[in-house]
Design a protein around this nucleic acid. Structure first.
Lengths: 341, 341
DNA sequence: ATTAGCACTCCCCGGTGTCGAGTGCTACCC
DNA sequence: GGGTAGCACTCGACACCGGGGAGTGCTAAT
């Protein structure tokens, strides 16, 4: 039906105008700014229907309409078309990322870049240890009774732990452990490593086995730890732009939520389940008090099909979804490319 | 002179009241809340003198007085007495920090802790490479033509760089480099290392010397890099507390300044020069546009006399200076203790 | 030197009134 | 039946006004 189509056009127009002007949009303005070919009165009928359906709402009687979360959802799922980035933009992204010297630098540059592109908060998750492969495992004796265990992954991430030993250890034994561990572990996906190392101690002299076991335990603990999931933020200042008027009261709860890395990690993990390339969580869908007025746009990155971690952008529900989606996707793509090198 | 003393008392009272109430303080309120033993009219005369001296100002003609930066400076330098933390508080600090598993964790816990104690923004600088000593230097061949150089310091910091090689390298040569480099470098302060390594290549076979030189160059570059100075922030949400009304317009410029790590690094470095244990920069003293309404309280930490890096708290000029100073000092002390272990 | 009294300034706050954007409804037209 | 014009109505935004009050500076008296 034609009128049904127009209703969606109206919704799209409302979202676009509201994102741009930040003010409730009325029927008159709508027909003036868009070639809808009908009169304001007709638009009002459509608006009433859209409001009935829960896609838009009015802040108070006799104000214009504002999209609801459901309205944004509809917009994102069915009404928006992806913006492609300009060639110079792409070029700039690539140049910027290519100058990084190590993983920390790559991540840092990525998150700043995304924040700047979207004018929002950007978040980058470090390559997950579990989804990476072991490049090398290094054991370094430190002083008399300490052993430093250094994990190096194919994504360039380096994780280290100090191990307190029960007694002194010979360089020879350390060398043997290093050799055997690397023989087994190198190139392996870390997730699969957990079971694999179980029977490794048997290859050592019985007297050395307790030590070997403790080393393996440290490795497995490292992989299991909550803290292995590191995330980095940038662009929080962007939240306060425009007088911070994007949020009803203050942005304090938003900033608090962002500092709770647990919250972000949960969201990133959940969104990894969504079977779409770019996942979007809108307003209340974040399931977090402080984030009801914000939306998340995230996607995975990594050198192969299944991603090693996520990258995303966080902004007010009233954000430029097509632009944000394009930026997130672009940065993720170049990031993946850099890491694969 | 007695009246001179009272004037300072009045200034102290003004600062204390203003910090507490966040509102300009008038002569009547002042005599009611403090046992000054004189009438409001007398206070007014003192106030006029203090205003003449530039220590206080009035926002508009008939409002109370507000301390100026100069007033806060006087308060900090001559009028405030340090608050000691309660024993349970100290206990909590120690317990919290002791549970850290590695340096990243220690730094992360410290910065969060300080943010929570002060209800302000906390900043912690990673132990400076140059001020640390080398614990171990590890070389890890990666693939055919890449070498991973890993620096491990006595403060637990681990820095790694990847080196692209001109040609393949034998395990034997890597082992020799590792041995010789560690023989020379282990235990050395990294700052002194720069000259020391110069003639090390001579000990190698002539054909290997270019490679050795490139490795040494990477090490020296790493020490020289700007990026070796890492800092971590926490508690930015605290800036927005109380409706963000601590700042005249928005906190956007403040957040922007905080994201510019360069700005923070400059300040931390400058403050390291101040020959006091706890350095304070008030308002315009920060010499930065976005920070004219904020103050910095920082101190060094580290295992010995001269500190390896700094820790600090950032808040509105109208902050609780004694409390902040006490908290910063306490966390720095415990942090130093943990790192020395 | 301190203080009481006093005139003055100016912000804050509540009330009032107008204006206008926007709506819903109804009658009408194709 | 869908689209349109007209119209009465609602309600926030904004400007204006005026009283109350906190606070000041000045002066004269102690």
């Amino acid at each position: 039906m034609g009128s049904e189509d127009r209703r969606l056009d109206v919704l799209r127009a409302i979202v676009e105008d509201y994102v741009e002007t930040r003010e409730p949009v009325g029927s008159r303005m709508l027909v003036e700014r868009h070639r809808l070919g009908v009169s304001p009165a007709t638009i009002r009928n459509d608006m009433a229907a859209l409001e009935e359906g829960g896609y838009i709402a009015q802040p108070h009687t006799s104000a214009g309409r504002v999209p609801t979360d459901k309205g944004y959802r509809m917009f994102v799922d069915r009404l928006s078309t992806v913006k492609a980035l300009s060639t110079p933009e792409k070029r700039a992204i690539q140049d910027f990322l290519e100058n990084a010297v190590d993983l920390d630098d790559v991540v840092d540059r990525s998150v700043r870049l995304l924040a700047q592109l979207t004018h929002q908060v950007a978040v980058v998750q470090y390559p997950s240890l579990r989804h990476s492969a072991m490049r090398h495992l290094e054991l370094v004796p430190v002083g008399e009774r300490r052993l430093l265990v250094v994990l190096i992954t194919d994504t360039g991430r380096v994780e280290q732990r100090t191990l307190e030993l029960a007694g002194p250890v010979t360089d020879l034994l350390v060398a043997e452990m290093r050799t055997r561990l690397n023989a087994v572990a190198s190139g392996q996906r870390l997730a699969q490593l957990v079971g694999t190392l179980e029977n490794l101690p048997d290859a050592f002299a019985p007297i050395d086995r307790p030590l070997v076991r403790s080393v393996i335990q440290v490795i497995e603990e490292t992989l299991a730890e909550e803290s292995e999931e590191r995330i980095v933020l940038a662009g929080t200042a962007n939240l306060a732009r425009g007088g911070g008027m994007d949020f009803t009261h203050t942005l304090s709860p938003v900033l608090e939520a962002l500092e709770e890395q647990v919250v972000l990690l949960r969201l990133l993990t959940e969104m990894a389940q969504d079977s779409v390339t770019v996942a979007v969580r809108i307003g209340h869908e974040t399931q977090h008090e402080g984030l009801v007025e914000t939306s998340f746009v995230t996607t995975g990155y990594g050198n192969d099909g299944d991603s090693v971690a996520r990258i995303g952008s966080i902004g007010p529900t009233r954000m430029d979804y097509p632009g944000t989606i394009a930026a997130v996707r672009a940065v993720a793509r170049y990031l993946s490319r850099i890491l694969a090198a």
